[in-house]
């Protein structure tokens, strides 16, 4: 068993690392070499592709736009999720089942089907009340906040359910209101989970493709995923340039997780989900 386990661990790690390293290797290849020997490990190593990708499409601008959109969007989704998740887990909310179905139900409709109805509604609001969430970064943040609040709610519902009841009951007995109990006891305890929820939200919203394209119709702001998609035009697909561009766009998320890894490790993944 001992050696068997070691072999499994080594194989699993290699299987995970290899494709990542391969993308990096491809990004460092010259185009000509990629065409003639796509599977070669040796050969030239060049950083030119990164510079070319950066210059070809405004990746810097797209990354900035994506951050401007997803950070408020993640904050909103987390805010909604913490409140609703806490209430559904710990408070006597009427029609709990119905609320849960409402929270989960939206997840069964693919975003691809909802982008145009969402866009139509935004235009209709613009034309009837003169205020709209179309074509602005804050508008897209709102949409992302709502779309990703569903799973956020389930995430925090699951977290708060595992919070020992006696902690909260003590506060109740002291005569604190529901709001006071939440703010003074539950919320401080949940801070690490909130950090994790925020990070995962940024990641999920960062990865979204279609809403980012359709809900920003002037093209003044472009999300990182749209920029990557624009990168492969009708007549250009794959290759070292695309590999370099994807690495550039993936970097901010890597950095984010690095910053948040303390909470990721010790809290959510370190024992807060209990049997």
């Amino acid at each position: 068993m001992r050696w068997g386990a070691r072999i499994v661990m080594v194989v699993a790690c290699l299987a995970v690392l290899f494709p990542l390293l391969w993308v990096l290797r491809t990004a460092l290849k010259s185009d000509a070499e990629f065409i003639s020997q796509p599977a070669a490990i040796g050969g030239t190593f060049t950083l030119d592709n990164f510079a070319a990708a950066w210059n070809a499409v405004d990746l810097g601008g797209a990354i900035r736009d994506s951050l401007v959109i997803t950070i408020p969007g993640a904050m909103l989704a987390t805010f909604l999720g913490v409140l609703a998740g806490y209430a559904l887990a710990k408070l006597p909310v009427p029609a709990k089942r119905l609320l849960l179905v409402l929270a989960v139900g939206g997840l069964t409709i693919p975003i691809a089907a909802l982008v145009i109805p969402e866009f139509d509604q935004a235009l209709w609001l613009r034309d009837t009340i003169g205020v709209s969430y179309v074509d602005s970064t804050w508008g897209l943040s709102l949409v992302y906040g709502a779309f990703f609040a569903s799973w956020s709610t389930l995430f925090f519902l699951s977290w708060f359910r595992d919070l020992p009841a006696d902690l909260l009951e003590a506060a109740w007995l002291d005569g604190a209101s529901a709001a006071q109990t939440f703010l003074r006891v539950a919320l401080p305890l949940a801070v690490p989970a909130i950090a994790v929820g925020l990070v995962l939200n940024v990641f999920l919203q960062w990865s979204e493709v279609l809403l980012g394209l359709i809900m920003l119709p002037s093209g003044d702001a472009t999300t990182a995923m749209t920029a990557i998609a624009s990168f492969s035009t009708q007549f250009r697909v794959g290759g070292p340039l695309t590999a370099a561009a994807t690495i550039i766009v993936a970097l901010p998320i890597f950095l984010l997780f690095l910053l948040a890894q303390r909470w990721l490790r010790t809290e959510i993944f370190g024992g807060s989900i209990k049997g």
Binding site: F119, I214, S218
Partner: peptide
């Protein structure tokens, strides 16, 4: 210049037209 992904050109163009940003 305002560019969109080739594969999503039709939906991007129609939504821009309706938003008045084509």
């Amino acid at each position: 210049f305002d560019a969109v992904p080739f594969a999503d050109f039709v939906s991007a163009a129609t939504s821009r037209a309706r938003a008045g940003t084509l």
